[in-house]
Design a protein around this nucleic acid. Structure first.
Length: 584
DNA sequence: GCCGTTTTCGGCCCGACTGTTTTCAGTCG
């Protein structure tokens, strides 16, 4: 069984145990183990084989045995037993805001509620208010919560989150008395998708800022409005979709603690607090306070001082997932993460020769304005007729055009001739080798037949990236975040093959893709695979999506040296020349 | 169920807010 599925099963087991009223720490152990599985440093099967799985924090003797059983047999009697004891619709109730395991248990026992439909019917019939511990207000909130579930798609993409939060941040910073303000939460950690928006500010008098915030014209509904925080719903990009935005205000000497706290992740915060306790301090969102002597506090002006007080190097937000950052920060082995300014150019960009909006000249000009030294054009290949994929004749025409443009640039900037060449169903490529040999680089991507079996798809991609003319693999799983699932593929096998054949793997930086993801990029680097960050731009504006790719690279612990497109133009050109002749 | 610089038992992160309650449980982040 695949790792993500195993993680999901452990997570569900934890949840079912919660609903059954089990010891909360036992439930948490299941959730913790599920989280640990999601960011494993290597392939699970490999880690079972070499014994390293036993060393993963949060996986003890019992859960280790369960994981091995799931991985090898695909079954777990303990899970099947829990499932049999729980109505299948019960866990869905947890998604209703304000409804947790205890309320579910109570409602299930009192009213035999087994599903969202049951819950709605009971609330509409006024049954819920009669249950002990519930009242009219709770009943109304449950009905509203179900409605909320139906109008929010849940999470949103980073580009949408940024567009929504930017004016809020600007507004808060402009308020009288505001000293500092930052976006925190998952957006600051650059998570793939965002649940809600968190903004923090410091001020001597936060109250009026909340008053002004809840009356902003874009606010659709005020969820809460107190003296330390306010929550509102903002209209999302999709019709009838709403996104929660929380604003919090603290005194300026609390700002560092609050910023760290509200940035998360939850697992990282728990790790920090545990660490604080071990050093005799209690950490909350306001201060570091002595456990024995509450008058003893450690003031911190910024997060760097907070980490220092904990005996740690500064941990960048992208690494705060409790995935090894504490150990690394303690022994001084945190990587110096890549930054946007390290990028010298990029590949895999489309022009109006295929399905892009801009001409070659416009794309080149756009890249130069962003300070890039080169741009790799990568229009679609002939099979992708829908996207005006280039025929071999048009490829030759485009090469002539690029040669002419490069002559004009006079060595100050260069367009690389490339193609986003389709990987055909059998793993062969959409252009013959003699044509491929004429490109400066080739990115190979799957655009068809997504429904293959995992074995077939894996073999298909491995065959393609084994072709010595292929420089890099494009969007490795084909996923579209929040809208299309990845195709079935064994990424660890693909990574092995990429390492063997010296084929790079792309971080497709489009906020709709972010593919490969950070967990696998981290593994790929460990295996010696070079990563390249490409925007898959279909317009000049699309070039700026590179920043999302840098976010993925940072979450993958990558440094400047791990990423191909950080070298100067001459070096990039030289390395592409060498790779063109790569043999096996 | 996990784990150990109070180490094999007895802890396990912390505070705000809400609603149902006269002192607190549940949920959320």
């Amino acid at each position: 069984m695949e790792t993500p599925r195993i993680a999901q099963i452990l997570d569900d087991m934890g949840t079912i145990l919660e609903v059954q009223g089990e010891n909360p720490f036992r439930c948490r152990a299941y959730h913790n183990a599920a989280q640990a599985l999601q960011s494993l440093p290597s392939d699970l099967t490999e880690m079972i084989a070499d014994g390293s799985l036993t060393e993963v924090p949060g996986i003890g003797e019992t859960l280790y045995a369960k994981i091995v059983q799931l991985a090898t047999t695909g079954r777990l009697p303990a899970y099947e037993k829990l499932r049999a004891e729980t109505p299948p619709g019960l866990l869905a109730l947890l998604r209703v805001p304000g409804v947790g395991p205890k309320k579910i248990k109570a409602l299930h026992e009192a009213l035999d509620i087994q599903s969202l439909a049951d819950l709605r019917a009971a609330a509409q019939a006024g049954q819920i208010a009669k249950v002990k511990g519930f009242g009219a207000k709770t009943e109304a909130n449950i009905l509203e919560g179900i409605g909320f579930l139906e109008t929010t798609g849940g999470r949103i993409l980073q580009n949408e989150a940024l567009a929504l939060v930017a004016p809020i941040l600007e507004f808060v910073r402009a308020q009288k008395g505001v000293i500092r303000a930052e976006v925190c939460g998952s957006l600051r950690r650059r998570a793939e998708t965002i649940g809600d928006l968190d903004v923090l500010f410091s001020s001597k008098e936060p109250g009026p800022v909340f008053d002004a915030f809840v009356t902003l014209p874009q606010v659709a509904k005020v969820l809460g409005h107190g003296t330390t925080k306010a929550s509102v719903l903002l209209p999302g990009f999709k019709t009838d979709q709403f996104v929660q935005c929380d604003l919090r205000g603290v005194a300026d000497d609390q700002f560092a603690f609050a910023l760290h706290y509200f940035t998360g992740s939850k697992a990282h915060n728990i790790g920090m607090r545990r660490r604080a306790l071990a050093r005799g301090y209690s950490l909350n969102e306001y201060a570091l306070t002595g456990v024995k002597d509450e008058s003893k506090t450690l003031p911190c002006r910024d997060e760097a001082e907070l980490f220092e007080a904990m005996g740690l190097e500064y941990i960048p937000p992208e690494l705060r997932e409790d995935a090894g950052e504490f150990e690394a920060a303690e022994n001084g082995s945190l990587p110096k993460l890549i930054e946007y300014s390290d990028l010298t150019g990029t590949f895999h960009c489309h022009s109006d020769w295929s399905d892009g909006e801009a001409t070659l000249e416009e794309m080149a000009e756009g890249a130069r304005e962003l300070g890039m030294q080169y741009l790799g054009i990568g229009d679609h290949s002939r099979s992708l007729a829908m996207a005006r994929g280039l025929t071999i004749d048009r490829v030759h025409d485009q090469w002539a055009k690029i040669d002419a443009l490069n002559a004009k640039f006079g060595g100050q900037f260069r367009l690389f001739k490339g193609t986003e060449c389709d990987i055909l169903g059998d793993g062969s490529l959409d252009f013959p080798d003699d044509v491929l040999a004429g490109f400066d680089y080739v990115v190979a991507s799957v655009h068809s037949r997504f429904k293959m079996s995992r074995d077939e798809m894996t073999a298909r991609i491995i065959r393609a990236i084994s072709n010595p003319h292929v420089t890099m693999l494009g969007h490795a799983t084909g996923r579209l975040l929040l809208s299309r699932a990845p195709y079935e593929v064994d990424l660890d096998a693909v990574i092995e093959a990429a390492a063997k054949h010296r084929t790079m793997i792309e971080i497709n930086a489009s906020p709709y893709r972010l593919d490969m993801d950070s967990v696998h990029c981290r593994r790929a680097r460990k295996k010696g695979v070079t990563i390249v960050i490409n925007p898959d731009a279909h317009s000049v504006a699309g070039l700026k999506d590179l920043s999302y790719g840098v976010g993925v690279a940072r979450r993958a612990w990558l440094t400047r040296d791990d990423v191909f497109n950080t070298a100067p133009l001459a070096e990039v050109a030289r390395r592409l020349e060498i790779l063109k002749g790569k043999g096996d």
